[in-house]
Design a protein around this nucleic acid. Structure first.
Lengths: 105, 105
DNA sequence: AGGTATACTAAGGAATCCTTAGCCTTTTAG
DNA sequence: CTAAAAGGCTAAGGATTCCTTAGTATACCT
């Protein structure tokens, strides 16, 4: 019954960071962390040792160009779709909701 | 410069809980919390006083029938779509990614 | 009124995080 | 080759946040 209870955040964070080609420390600095602590803190988050609070989560999301919810997506396709949704208007998303609702239900 | 930095979790939690018509305390108990602490803990989360760790977040999501990422959606339409995505197969989601990609880009 | 249910809060012990101070490997420069 | 720099990573303790206890307040019901 080994119910794997994996926190997606470490993986998603690493994916988004490496996509930008910057180091853990540099990302932390860009988020406004002290240069002396940025490396350790970001590494803790990426290794799942610690969990960032919401303000840090939001800052990371903005810096990485993803929505906060992206960090908690369990599947790749959902993560990808969320990033696309962020680029759409409310109207476009409302339309998509209707379409998908008819398809699924 | 009032940068609205609202944590969506309290609102989303309340939305999903009231949709089920159960009390804060009862939800906490269903998550396996001690009956003596369930009320206070759930209220803290719903008022934004404290933030649940991932295990609690996952348990809440499962019990409420939403994905964990739902708690962090800033817009209603995105929150709604995420819940629909959870009911789709990986294949269906992959197809949707393609469609949306062509629409957006 | 009395009892119950629900939402909510203060305070302190318990748990987690942030910071300091490094180590270890790989890569780059000399 | 050697040294230095860069990136990833970790232990430990002070700083911060959370969990738990205990209780208040309001509304509803009998």
């Amino acid at each position: 019954m080994s119910e794997k209870q994996i926190n997606p955040l470490p993986l998603r964070l690493k994916q988004a960071r490496t996509a930008l080609g910057i180091s853990q420390k540099q990302l932390g600095i860009q988020l406004g962390m002290e240069p002396g602590t940025a490396s350790a803190r970001m590494n803790h988050y990426e290794k799942g040792k610690h969990t960032p609070d919401y303000a840090t989560l939001k800052a990371m999301a903005d810096e990485l160009g993803v929505p906060v919810a992206y960090f908690f997506c369990e599947s790749e396709s959902t993560a990808e779709l969320l990033c696309l949704l962020e680029k759409m208007t409310e109207e476009e998303k409302a339309d998509l909701v209707k379409k998908v609702t008819n398809t699924v239900l």
